[in-house]
Amino acid sequence: MELNAITIGFVVFSIFTLGGGFGVVTTRNLFQGTIWLMVSLFGVAGYFVLLSAPFLAAVQILVYIGAIAILITFAVMLTRSVTRIKSRYVRLVPSFIGSLALFLVLLLGITVPIFGGQLPEAAPETVATTRDLGAALVDENGYVVPFMLASVLLTAAMIGSIFIARDENA
């Protein structure tokens, strides 16, 4: 692997992503856990920049850190004993085996074409612009159906949450 700016960036963002993930599962403090989660998500945003997808990087920051993680901090503060969690998770061996198996399956699935996958293709030379992304989302040969389905799902979720949260007497 040659040492250039992209390699350094990859290493730095990998440290962010994995270190953040490690922090989430090891900290005894729920609030610090959410902060570690944000660090991890930030690392993922860095990957998007390295992959020449600035739009996805900005959306990653905006949606995951700016909205979802902030909401998680709100939810965390409404739970009891945010800082000092006494109970320990005891089933370490089964969870270790489970996560290792999942990791291996993912690793094999990506690197070895055993699930009918294709050989890894070379990255396309042209960089998809935000304009291409937008056109693909509304193109009938592109992703218009998944896009519409996702919109319907989100709308349904929003209406559902309003319905649940509504005051009965109002």
């Binding site: 609030f31 902060i35 944000m38 600035p54 739009f55 900005a58 959306v59 920051i61 905006l62 850190i65 700016g66 909205a67 993680a69 902030i70 901090t73 503060m77 612009t129 935000t130």
Partner: peptide, 23 residues
Amino acid sequence: EIGALFFVAVASFGTLAIMVAGW
């Protein structure tokens, strides 16, 4: 290419800072 979106994304760090400071 995403200048306007960058501005919004970066501004969300400010919100985060206030939350962290308060806690």
